[in-house]
Structure formats: structure tokens, C-alpha cells
Design a protein around this nucleic acid. Sequence first.
DNA 1: AAAGATCCCAACCGCCTAAAC
DNA 2: CGTTTAGGCGGTTGGGATCTT
Length: 355
Amino acid sequence: MGRSPCCDESRVKKGPWSPEEDEILVKYIKEHGHGSWRALPKLAGLNRCGKSCRLRWTNYLRPDIKRGKFSPEEENTILHLHAILGNKWSAIAGHLEGRTDNEIKNYWNTHLKKRLINSGIDPVTHRPSTVDMFSSLPHLLALVNLNELLMGHQSSIEEHTLRLQAEAMAKIQYLQSLTQAPTPQATTSSMVNDPCPNTPSNNNHINGLMDIETLKILSSISQIEDPACGSPSMFGNPSSSQVREDCFSFPRLPELQNPISSFQATPSKENFMKVEEGSLNFTSFQPYKSPKSSSHQLLVNDGDATMKCHGDDPYIITPGFDGISSSGWSDFLLEDPSFSSLLPQIPFYSPSPIP
DNA sequence: AAAGATCCCAACCGCCTAAAC
DNA sequence: CGTTTAGGCGGTTGGGATCTT
């Protein structure tokens, strides 16, 4: 329930500010400070609402505003911070001296977002586009299984097999739910403007490629579940052998030098955690509890850049993903909880609850 | 040169939060 | 403790500027 607009009075002027109005506002604030924005227009002799005055001042008239083109350094800062903070424009603006949240928001919407999209990067997640994410799923699963083998987490072949089957079932159910959901009138713009891109339901906002990709993924899962391809697929699909023959490659993923690494994270001071061992190329974690939600968030810093994922589930960290160079992420990929929920049994690091 | 398309950004709108009452 | 409200925020829009055909 929002409050009613502060400018109910229809008599107040709207629209572009005239130079005279600007002058009055600047003069008043320089002499008196803004004080109560609601009271300011009357005191200053402006036929505007207080909100309009505040916006005009903070976004345009403030003397410390830096105008002009964004420098490459500023662009990088915005990209990095947006990957961490999302559309928290005021928070991002806090790191860019002289830039307003509105200016950064506009610059993002008109320049940076398009640039990421053109580079095949989802501007919301800062990761390769959704289709690419799905195409990487089988590779991730293979890595997971390899990791488990290397780590010796399975006590027996049978236990390992059971776990793989359980995982595969979870993944399949999820993917099937995607394909069975009603198909919205998906367009590229609907994906771009999707306000909740990380929710599973929104993964439906994919065009026909989704079906193809999903089929491939399902096919690959059946391969993982049955690596020898010698037993019937769990789909019971007679044509699955044909699908299986289409062993697709993962052009976006380089050959990994290291499988997903094991590492230990121990609490140091307050909510900060340091990685004590492990071969991933980052230096620190910083989990924290969002004050506005029940989810935990996790900042990971690789010495050059910081990324974030959030949620209560374990995190999946894949080294060697090298498709996001324009925003500086090159050493790893953090998957979000909607994805990690598909892999519930992975013994990865999960941030400790923050008091 | 003109019309249409696209870009850009200042400004507005509606919602949220926290402080005041 | 519940209600009201100022300030703040992010999303969206309107229209001028610029580009394309």
C-alpha cells in the first residue's frame, strides 16, 4: 500500500524546468539549505511540488554533479557493481563520485545493457545468456560427478549411482516443468525486461530454442545417468538412442584444468570468511544476510573483481568459465540458487547463517 | 529534404521504509 | 502500537535530438 502522491494539487507545474526555476531553486538552497522538501517550494516561491524540487536538485542542479561522458573506468565500475548489487542505482552511484543514480540508471539502460546483450551476456545475471546457461548444464553435471569421484564422497559405487539417479530425477523434473509450462509470448525484449530472471518460471521466457536445448540437456542427463549408454534411458523413449548420438559439444566452456575444487572456508572476523585451501582463483568470501529478505548473499572476490549470488542453498562454483570478459569476470562462474537447487547434494561450501 | 525510426535522458509515478505523531 | 507522512528509490515515460531511409 503506497502513499498517495505528494503533489495532489493539480495546480503545481510539471514538466521540464525553466532556467528561471532552476535559478530560484539553486539560490534558495544555497541560502537556506533544502530543509523540508515539502515546504521548500512555498518558501522558495516555486510552483512545484517538493518531490520535483528534490529530484531537480539531486539529479541536475547539485554543484558536485559531474556531467559528460562516462569514462571507461566508470563503465567498468558500473558493470562490476551491477553484477554485485543489481539495480541498486543509488548504491552504485555511491561509488561514482559526482554521478547520480538516475544518470547511472539511464546510462545502463541505454548503453551498458545493450552492450552486454550484444556480447551474449545476460545483463541481469552477468552470465552468458539463458540458453547458454542451459547448454552448460550437462558440463556442470559432469564436473560435479567428476568432483565427487575425486573427492571420494561416495562410499560405494552403488551409493554413487543412487545419488546420480536422484540428482538426475530432480533435474529432469525441473526441466520438464519448464517445457510443460504455458508458453508466453516470448520475445527478446521480454527476456531483457524480465523483472525476475532467476526464478524458474521465468526461464520459460525462451523461444523455440528452449525446446531444442532442453532436449539436448535431457539427453545429456540420460548420458550422465548412464555413462556407458548401454542401458535404457530413464525416459523410456525409444528414440533416445538417436538423441544420444547427437553428442553435443560445449563450445563456450574451455577444457577445465581443474575440476571443481574442494576448499574450506572458515569464519574469520565478523562475517568475513577466507578460503584456506583450494585451487580456485579467488581470494575471499563475504557472506552476509540481507536485511530485507531471509536469503543469504555471498560475495566472492578473486582479487580483481567481486561477484554475488544469493539464497540459502549451497553454491556451485565453476572455474574456467571464460565468457564474460567484457565485465571482467573470467575465472569463475557462480550459479544462483535456482540452479543449485537442481543439485541438492553437492557438498559445496554453504555460507554459515549470519546472526 | 522529409518522414519515420531510434536514441537518449530529464522528469514523473508509485511503492517502500523509517521516523514522527 | 497503529497510523501518517517525508524522503528515497527503482521503473517507466514523454518528447526532443539524432539517425536512417
